[in-house]
Design a binder for these strands. Structure first.
Length: 820
DNA sequence: GGAGTTCGCATACC
DNA sequence: ACAGGTATGCGAACTCC
């Protein structure tokens, strides 16, 4: 039989001592399919340098004869092959050791390690799914043609095909790439409501599901009146029905929002309490909770995607939302909000409130499903680019993405993968001193007119490519015809580092990533599809994270020397651009890392563009400078302490009258709304009007209305994130005190929460934290605190640019303008 | 016990 | 612990007299 098939989920089973890969997915005609296949389980042994071919062959023989037992299985070596491979810039002879079983690779490697003549073992830490994908080229979310035998209760696989809830189980004979076509997965979103937030402590009151037209809320509370609500006999019955509906709807993907951390653990806990099983897997298995920094819930055959995890890592940097709550994120991305539901207590929901509660619960699933479809192009393209299973890609961080991309492309370079750092290596790396990073030019505080900003496109990645910076190209000492990176500040002294000019895999791969991104952007211009945008975005993230990866303690290809050299070259190039710009009669007023702002000094925009062309013609390799924008006005202020200009704090106004505000309190979520609003309006007026006249009156008006308590309390709430557990704080700031109060009141408080509070009046000498109150706590806000600690700090430095002092803001009598 | 300084912490920029 | 370093500025905690 031959079918076209798209892989979604990968796992493997141990059948009669052999690993069998299970690839779940859809066929082109919409059937749910499981492909059974296998690939070699192996690792590499790199013999000691200087061993003759004969001695290596002898070592191979010795390895071939390894036999032992593990977990009741016979462990043996299937075969040993000698290959010519590359490893970190060197050609090596390596032994490919094919093991009887994936699970025994570690056991065998431990034995082999002791053999004389063994220099190192590698790739024992490649997961089976990764190995299968690279070996067989069966790429996730990419269409394939599969030829094989349809299994029907086959004894060969101990009948596993008969227990799988799929339309077809195929034992693969041949799998090859097929023509690309559209794929729209069937997605079910779900959400639970419980009467206690602590996992497992309370009851699950209801479970909602949304899957296309299928909308359902399950509950065991007696209720009638809404078609979509189904009343179950008990909590246990509800859990069972949930599994049944998942089975009936046959989704490819089950999605939730924070479902790794809340919904699925809660479901598991309640299932345990009710002494029943949560049989969601296509083999009727329960979700498996993989322990990592954050636990991930995996369901056999169905891709469980926690959208919160994906948004947190891959998407949050592009969002305006100040929290990553479902409500805020959905509102920004799909323009829909959650329903409101506020009950005094979830354990005492009043009779007339249930209807709203069910509607609220359903809406959460409905918007989660919509959010999923909005993010699907990114999930799809990220998966295709990184080549890891969707489940993993949706949870991986930047470093993992980079590493996955590298590992899935090593075969082209005939390269053996470096191992993950050991615990000791990680500790050492973490303990190292910081190296010197980017250059930031201190601006002179002032209001400027007619500016432009130039930026390097992908500065760091293009430096890594242009100067071949990586672990495998780093030279122990100077060689002729190598790249010399001078004066790299690291460990307290200036050092020189040398990198080979022979291109090797990491810089080559990063070069490809930059090129591919450019191609995507170009294609997108002609044909703006969400998929092209998402693909371009995947390459952008890879390029941006590549530099951070070099200096990341958990990286296989960790290389501080390369990271520090990248930053040093970045400094060199931005300095060169600044000098050339100043020498051309333009005045650079500010710079940060890879871009700088300068005054036109009467020059025409056309002249500036020509100057840009000239700069570009003088840049080496793939380095490129571009115009970010022209600006009518820009303001730079002093630091709160001292006379010097503050870095990373400025506001610009372009020709379309759009403001670009960086670093100011306006863009910081830990300042109250009033302070942010006032500062934003002051900046707006100043940039548009070119002077501070009207904004001064405006600011004074606000201070006066605050004095008269005409400002509603809501605008004075300060929000600060609780970044850790209460007991881990050394010093107790106001938000920690408020969090303690909340705990005392029995409110749910977790690390990661935004704590909201206001500052109330108090006795003289009271600490601020002693006056911090929860939003609904009775009290009067302290007008002095808000004037002196919120409003004035937000605008003082801006007015200082115009010679207006703090006293001029608070004086009761307004001065006439000419007095300034 | 008050003034000045350092430190811890949150958040931003690139 | 889960990409890097650079930077501001608050409020608490410390130092010093």
């Amino acid at each position: 039989m031959q079918i076209n098939f798209i892989p979604l989920n990968y796992d493997y089973l141990d059948i009669d001592g052999k690993a069998v890969a299970r690839i779940f997915g859809r066929s082109a005609d919409g059937k749910r399919v499981c492909i059974l296949d296998s690939c070699d389980s192996f690792f590499w042994v790199i013999p000691k340098q200087g061993l003759s071919e004969k001695e290596i062959e002898k070592l191979g023989e010795k390895i071939k004869n390894v036999k032992t037992e593990s977990a009741g299985r016979e462990v043996y070596i299937e075969r040993v092959e000698l290959h010519k491979k590359n490893f970190l810039g060197k050609q090596v002879k390596a032994l490919k050791v094919v093991a009887s079983n994936q699970k025994d690779i570690h056991v065998i490697a431990e034995i082999v390690r002791e053999f004389s003549g063994v220099e190192m073992k590698r790739e024992i830490d490649i997961p089976y799914a990764t190995r299968y994908i690279t070996e067989k080229n069966v790429l996730p979310l990419t269409w394939h043609s599969v030829t094989g035998e349809v299994l029907n209760n086959s004894s060969e696989f101990r009948g596993i095909d008969s227990i799988l809830d799929v339309d077809l189980v195929i034992k693969a004979e041949k799998i090859s790439a097929a023509e690309e076509r559209e794929f729209n997965p069937k997605v079910m979103a779900f959400d639970i409501e419980a009467d206690e937030l602590e996992i497992g402590r309370g009851n699950i009151l209801m479970i909602s599901m949304a899957c296309g037209k299928f909308h359902k809320v399950l509950t065991w509370k007696k209720f009638s009146g809404e078609d979509y609500v189904e009343t179950c006999k008990s909590e246990a019955d509800m859990l069972e029905k949930f599994c049944e509906y998942v089975k009936k709807e046959k989704p490819d993907i089950l999605t939730g929002y924070f479902s790794d951390g809340f919904d699925l653990p809660y479901l598991r806990a309640r299932a345990e309490k009710n002494k029943m099983k949560l049989e969601l897997g296509l083999d009727s298995s329960q979700p498996i909770f993989a322990r990592g920094r954050i636990t991930s819930a995996k369901i056999a055959g169905i891709a469980h995607i926690d959208l919160f995890r994906f948004i947190e890592t891959a998407y949050s940097q592009y969002l305006q939302s100040e929290t990553l709550s479902l409500d805020e994120v959905a509102s920004e991305l799909i323009g829909e909000r959650k329903h409101e539901f506020k009950s005094h207590s979830k354990s005492e929901v009043k009779a007339h409130e249930w209807k709203d509660y069910f509607a609220y619960n359903l809406q959460d699933s409905v918007i989660t499903e919509k959010l999923f479809h909005k993010l699907w192009p990114d999930l799809l393209e990220f998966t295709r680019v990184m080549q890891e299973p969707l489940f993993d890609v949706s949870r991986d961080g930047f470093a993992q993405h980079v590493e996955n991309y590298i590992i899935h492309n090593l075969a082209r370079f005939n390269e053996i993968a470096e191992h993950r750092p050991t615990h000791e290596q990680i500790q050492q790396r973490r303990a190292r001193q910081k190296y010197e990073g980017a250059f930031v030019l201190q601006p002179k505080p002032s209001l400027y007119e007619n500016l432009a900003v130039f930026d390097f496109t992908s500065l760091y990645p293009s430096l890594i490519v242009s100067f071949n910076l990586s672990l495998s190209t780093l030279l122990p000492k100077k060689e002729k015809d190598s790249f010399e990176i001078k004066d790299v500040e690291f460990e307290g002294k200036k050092q020189n580092y040398y990198f080979s000019k022979k291109p090797d895999f990491i810089p080559v791969l990063i070069g490809e990533i930059i090129k591919k991104r450019k191609e995507c952007k170009k294609q997108y211009k002609d044909n703006p599809t969400p998929l092209l945008k998402a693909r371009s975005n995947a390459f952008k993230i890879l390029a941006n994270a590549a530099y951070g990866y070099l200096g990341f303690f958990g990286a296989r290809y960790y290389c501080v020397e390369a990271a520090a050299s990248t930053a040093a070259l970045g400094r060199k190039f931005i300095h060169e651009m600044i000098d050339k710009t100043n020498n051309a009669g333009l005045s650079v007023i500010y710079a940060d890392t890879d871009g700088f702002a300068f005054l036109l000094n009467g020059k025409k925009e056309q002249e500036v563009l020509e100057f840009l062309k000239k700069l570009n013609s003088e840049l080496p390799g793939m380095m490129e400078l571009e115009l970010e924008d022209f600006y009518k006005r820009g303001i730079f202020v002093t630091k709160r302490t001292g006379e010097f200009g503050a870095k990373k704090k400025y506001a610009l106004l372009n020709k379309k009258n759009q403001m670009k505000i960086r670093g100011f309190e306006t863009v910081r979520r830990d300042w109250c709304e009033l302070a942010r609003e006032v500062q934003n309006n002051v900046l707006d007026k100043i940039l548009n009007e070119g002077n501070a006249d009207s904004s001064l009156n405006y600011a004074r008006g606000i201070i006066n209305s605050l004095k008269k308590r005409q400002v509603e309390r809501e605008k004075l709430m300060i929000r600060t994130q609780l970044k850790r557990n209460i007991e881990d704080y050394i010093t107790e700031g106001p938000h920690v005190t408020v969090a303690k109060k909340m705990i005392a009141k029995g409110m749910p408080v977790d690390a990661g929460m935004l704590i909201e509070f206001y500052i109330s009046e108090g006795k003289k000498g009271d600490l601020i934290r002693e006056r911090a109150k929860m939003p609904d706590e009775p009290g009067e806000y302290d007008t002095d605190y808000y004037i002196e600690h919120q409003i004035i700090p937000a605008v003082e430095n801006i007015f200082a640019v115009f010679g207006i002092a703090k006293e001029d803001l608070t004086e009761k009598k307004q001065k006439k303008l000419h007095e300034f």
